[in-house]
Simulated assay, not measured.
Amino acid sequence: MTPEEIARASADAMWSTDRASQHLGMKIEHIAPGQATLTMTVTEEMTNGHENAHGGYIFTLADSAFAFACNSYNAVTVGQQASINYVSPGKLGDVLTATATEASRTGRSGVYDVNVTNQDGRLVAHFRGLSRSIKGNYLPE
């Protein structure tokens, strides 16, 4: 299998049991080694008391993109630390796009940056996640 095929097959295996991302209406738009792009529409149930997208949902979208990017090598990988900076509010009806890119991957550790934008390309948040590979694979060796 090519690296792209491994990334896609790993994502398909993960997606099959990722009930949280599925329940929130996320869609995988792009998968490649060390990369993932997911989208999610902000629904009424995702808004806070300011009628903006609740930060927890924005974080969850970014975290899911991070997860698919760092699990694109057929190695079960978990997040060990993550942080987010909210730049501008998401609004009801916005289609948010989380684009995860590998910044570094050495041994079992990785660093990933995720930008969350709205449908107009406006930056909503920046997320950085640190990953750690553990035992297990998605595909037969």
Score class of each variant (00 low, 15 high):
residue 62 A to S: 07
residue 26 M to L: 13
residue 64 S to G: 11
residue 141 E to W: 05
residue 4 E to Q: 15
residue 100 A to K: 03
residue 135 K to L: 07
residue 40 M to Y: 06
residue 5 E to R: 12
residue 17 T to K: 12
residue 134 I to T: 08
residue 34 G to Q: 08
residue 39 T to H: 07
residue 21 S to D: 03
residue 90 G to K: 07
residue 121 G to H: 02
residue 32 A to F: 06
residue 121 G to C: 10
residue 69 A to E: 01
residue 138 Y to W: 15
residue 66 F to C: 02
residue 76 V to D: 00
residue 118 N to G: 10
residue 12 D to T: 11
residue 26 M to N: 06
residue 97 T to W: 04
residue 127 F to D: 00
residue 40 M to F: 05
residue 39 T to M: 10
residue 44 E to T: 12
residue 58 I to Y: 01
residue 108 R to W: 02
residue 100 A to V: 06
residue 92 L to M: 12
residue 109 S to H: 11
residue 119 Q to P: 01
residue 42 V to Y: 02
residue 118 N to C: 08
residue 125 A to L: 05
residue 55 G to A: 06
residue 134 I to F: 00
residue 70 C to V: 11
residue 98 A to D: 05
residue 78 V to I: 14
residue 29 E to A: 07
residue 72 S to K: 01
residue 104 S to V: 10
residue 17 T to V: 14
residue 89 P to V: 03
residue 88 S to D: 04
residue 59 F to E: 03
residue 85 N to R: 15
residue 47 T to L: 04
residue 23 H to A: 15
residue 110 G to T: 10
residue 24 L to D: 03
residue 131 S to K: 06
residue 134 I to V: 14
residue 44 E to C: 05
residue 134 I to S: 00
residue 16 S to C: 02
residue 67 A to S: 14
residue 139 L to G: 10
residue 67 A to Q: 07
residue 133 S to R: 12
residue 116 V to C: 01
residue 60 T to S: 15
residue 119 Q to W: 07
residue 117 T to C: 12
residue 117 T to D: 09
residue 140 P to F: 05
residue 111 V to C: 00
residue 23 H to E: 12
residue 38 L to E: 03
residue 90 G to Q: 07
residue 10 S to L: 05
residue 3 P to G: 14
residue 134 I to M: 03
residue 68 F to R: 03
residue 32 A to L: 08
residue 43 T to Q: 14
residue 110 G to P: 02
residue 44 E to H: 11
residue 10 S to T: 10
residue 32 A to K: 07
residue 80 Q to Y: 07
residue 46 M to V: 11
residue 98 A to N: 10
residue 16 S to A: 14
residue 82 A to G: 08
residue 31 I to R: 06
residue 26 M to I: 12
residue 72 S to H: 05
residue 135 K to D: 12
residue 105 R to M: 06
residue 51 E to K: 15
residue 98 A to P: 04
residue 52 N to L: 13
residue 130 L to R: 14
residue 79 G to Y: 04
residue 105 R to I: 06
residue 134 I to W: 02
residue 122 R to Q: 15
residue 38 L to K: 02
residue 54 H to I: 09
residue 86 Y to E: 01
residue 62 A to R: 04
residue 104 S to G: 03
residue 3 P to N: 15
residue 10 S to R: 07
residue 116 V to E: 03
residue 29 E to S: 02
residue 66 F to L: 07
residue 68 F to C: 01
residue 80 Q to P: 00
residue 11 A to I: 13
residue 37 T to L: 15
residue 1 M to S: 14
residue 72 S to A: 11
residue 50 H to R: 14
residue 46 M to H: 06
residue 112 Y to W: 09
residue 126 H to I: 13
residue 66 F to D: 01
residue 4 E to M: 08
residue 125 A to I: 06
residue 24 L to R: 01
residue 20 A to I: 13
residue 35 Q to V: 15
residue 46 M to G: 06
residue 42 V to P: 04
residue 48 N to C: 03
residue 111 V to G: 00
residue 72 S to N: 01
residue 103 A to M: 14
residue 86 Y to W: 10
residue 121 G to I: 09
residue 9 A to R: 15
residue 113 D to M: 08
residue 36 A to G: 01
residue 37 T to F: 05
residue 50 H to F: 14
residue 99 T to Y: 01
residue 116 V to A: 05
residue 86 Y to R: 05
residue 135 K to A: 11
residue 38 L to Q: 02
residue 125 A to N: 05
residue 87 V to Y: 06
residue 25 G to H: 10
residue 21 S to K: 09
